[in-house]
């Protein structure tokens, strides 16, 4: 499965990089390398994907995402839970 087919909110591990050397090294310096963990933050229409990679936000074109073979590790439980907790905390503060 490539990164393009991954749903919003899902965390994946990069298993294989099907790009030429230059592209692979460019992706690596931005944190996308073999074995890296990536969360898809948004994917709208044909727009680039928005990713969370090692805490930074990356915009990645669909063409590049197509070349990344990944395995879904499931939705990041912390994101959902934390958001709920955060909302609760804010409600308490107010």
């Amino acid at each position: 499965m490539t990164l393009t087919g991954i749903n919003k909110g899902t965390v994946v591990r990069v298993l294989q990089i099907r790009h030429d050397k230059e592209t692979s090294q460019r992706l690596a310096e931005l944190g996308l390398h073999l074995g890296s963990l990536v969360q898809v933050l948004s994917r709208a229409g044909q727009d680039p994907l928005l990713l969370d990679v090692k805490g930074a936000r990356l915009a990645l074109s669909r063409h590049l995402a197509d070349g990344l073979v990944v395995r879904a590790l499931g939705e990041d439980p912390t994101t959902q839970g934390k958001r709920r907790r955060l909302r609760r905390r804010r409600a308490q503060g107010a």
Binding site: K21, S24, A28, H33, L34, G35, T78, T79, R83, R85
Partner: peptide, 27 residues
């Protein structure tokens, strides 16, 4: 080159695990 990048990050990950702690809220 892919393997080298992977090993660098693996090593970096080891350093970060040993030296950085995150206590704040995520999300």
């Amino acid at each position: 080159e892919n393997l080298l990048a992977d090993r660098r990050y693996l090593w970096i990950n080891g350093v970060v695990t040993d030296t950085v702690t995150k206590t704040g809220p995520e999300g």
